[in-house]
Design a protein around this nucleic acid. Structure first.
Lengths: 344, 344
DNA sequence: TCGGGGTTGGAGAGCGCTTTCCGAATGTTG
DNA sequence: CAACATTCGGAAAGCGCTCTCCAACCCCGA
């Protein structure tokens, strides 16, 4: 069976006794076709087991029925351990799941791309302009990423997940990171914590700086001034290290907002190591509501965000822009929620 | 910039003052081309910003430079909550990461597909035979899946991750699930547990039945007879329920092997609820070494498997089969390892 | 000087599909 | 019944590329 040629339009046409053009019309549901012929053609399609060749079709229509999910990284070469960690994190899968939930229904395919160099980005944009995919969902790893600009300049429909660090006229969906941080601050305050602190992510990534800003602003509004902030890099170990530093400081914090659950896991360990209890001595709220939050002990009070919904919206936005490239550039911001558990 | 046509081979040829054919030869690195012309052509390519149109190229070469990662489900229709859980699980991402680590290096793209119905499967195979992708990596969700057979019958290069439930002449990579279970059994035994039990996954999925068989066999070899086995479905809650049943039984187990970490989390809760301690009263070993294992309290002793490596090997296997479709069908089995932590 | 073998590069035929353009057939009206 | 509008289906021109032929040309020995 291997090498046998698949039936083409031509074959179906022959079987149905009509021309290629007619078969094409029937398959694509263009009216102007006698209902009788219509039926004859469909039968021939069934009989031959014909499956349209998407490649050939795309070549002429300039529509591929595919969108690309592009992970944009900088200077990453082949064995980037950071990338591998990125894929292992549920974040990636949740995005894919959210995208798929809407794309699938529209019969749109998802192609995955990683671009780690400027050359790769250039080719990627070229491929899209060549019709390889109809648009792109962008996942930026580095804080500042040239890709969104390249895409918009190239006239490629694109949606970014997460606010772009630099202003670029691109559609995006994002989380109200500042609101989430404020939620955390209020939680800590309302349980009576006096000496707050924060463990943040890298200050140059937007999600991170928004969380810092939101936390600070919420405290300021409640009359609290400066608070110590230690910077981690979203890994467990960096959270542990940061917490150690915080605990060694003066005053020792009695309430900590940690910018993601993974770091909070490390922070929890550091607190335990110091012989202190959570939440009695140090209250803690995380961010993400990852599976680690439930597994942690004590279970983590944290901030949940609807990543699947966000990704689904990104897909819808992208589809809309593909349909109408002149649509006004827009962004959709989702609100996070506090999940109360045992750590604060 | 939006609608401007991209340069084609023809354009490059005109700029370089040669024929289309020559440019094609240069781009594809076919010798037989005067070094001087070679240079002229490359310069023209640079000057025009030419990017080959993959679609057009694939149409004629019947090679797409793409492989498909297909998630095969049955009777799943649009909003399958199970599917969404599947994507949120690190399993999916780790597979993608592993695949990408080798595909990327070869300049091969990954396309993601979900097929939930027989019709979808049929079209999928048709698309592949039409050259949409050069091969497929199969991830089967249901215990028995018609897709592998369809693929091999259609002569489509394919590799499955995980042993197929029914014998199908398809390449696959798998984990020595039985060895992993045996490792768990030995650990429990060697710490002096007398009354062992197991919480398994659905008995009809191969990974699950292999773990059951491995566990039973290891115990038998050490002279232990029948042990109670409760069946869960790999979710946290099912693990909790199963553990409750086990604890209500007689004799009450003092050592439990749980077929994945997520269920172990639930089991841990059930033990705590019963007022018992882990590992003193009940020792527990999980499976997967997921991030939940570290976060759990006590941290889970568990079985680690090299999923990224397995996926990478799957990619290599697939590439090899694409290269040589007549290659002997093969499978690669990976050995798991015990990760000692606090629960056993 | 001529002919043979080996290179090079161009012309052109597709890959499988969509879609414009037209002629034929049918229906409608005065 | 002529004149026109309307519907329908076929022929054929591409979409951008690869690759098989084949003609032109080179170098060499006879």
């Amino acid at each position: 069976m291997r090498t046998e040629r698949l039936p083409t339009l031509e074959d179906v046409a022959r079987v149905a006794g009509v021309s290629r053009a007619t078969v094409s019309r029937v398959i694509n549901g263009i009216r102007n076709v006698d209902p009788q012929l219509h039926e004859v053609v469909w039968e021939a399609v069934g009989r031959t087991g014909y499956v349209p060749n998407r490649l050939a079709r795309s070549l002429v229509t300039r529509r591929s029925g595919t969108v690309a999910l592009v992970v944009s990284d900088t200077d990453s070469h082949d064995d980037d351990p950071f990338l591998s960690r990125f894929f292992a994190d549920p974040y990636f899968g949740r995005v894919v799941g959210g995208l798929m939930s809407v794309l699938r229904r529209q019969g749109v395919q998802l192609a995955l791309q990683i671009v780690g160099t400027d050359e790769a980005r250039r080719r990627f944009v070229g491929d899209l302009r060549n019709g390889q995919a109809d648009g792109a969902v962008v996942l930026s790893l580095p804080p500042v990423d040239p890709l969104p600009r390249l895409l918009t300049d190239g006239g490629v429909p694109a949606v970014q997940i997460g606010r772009p660090a630099e202003p670029v006229p691109i559609d995006y969906v994002d989380l109200a990171n500042d609101t989430g941080a404020a939620l955390a601050a209020e939680r800590l305050l309302s349980r009576g914590c006096q000496r707050l602190a924060m463990i943040s992510g890298p200050a140059d990534v937007p999600a991170s700086s928004d969380r810092i800003a939101g936390f600070r602003r919420a405290l300021a509004r409640r009359g609290h001034g400066w608070v110590p902030i230690e910077t981690g890099n979203f890994t467990r170990d960096s959270g542990e290290a940061a917490m150690r530093k915080l605990l060694g400081g003066d005053p020792q914090p009695d309430g900590v907002f940690v910018a993601n659950d993974l770091m909070a896991l490390g922070a929890l360990a550091a607190v335990r190591e110091a012989g202190l209890r959570v939440p009695e001595d140090v209250a803690m709220v995380g961010f993400d509501d990852s599976s680690a939050a439930v597994a942690a002990s004590p279970a983590l009070t944290t901030i949940r965000h609807p990543l699947e919904d966000m990704a689904a919206e990104a897909a819808r936005l992208l589809l809309a822009r593909i349909e109408d490239p002149d649509m006004r550039v827009s962004s959709v911001i989702y609100e996070p929620a506090l999940v109360e558990r045992d750590s604060a």
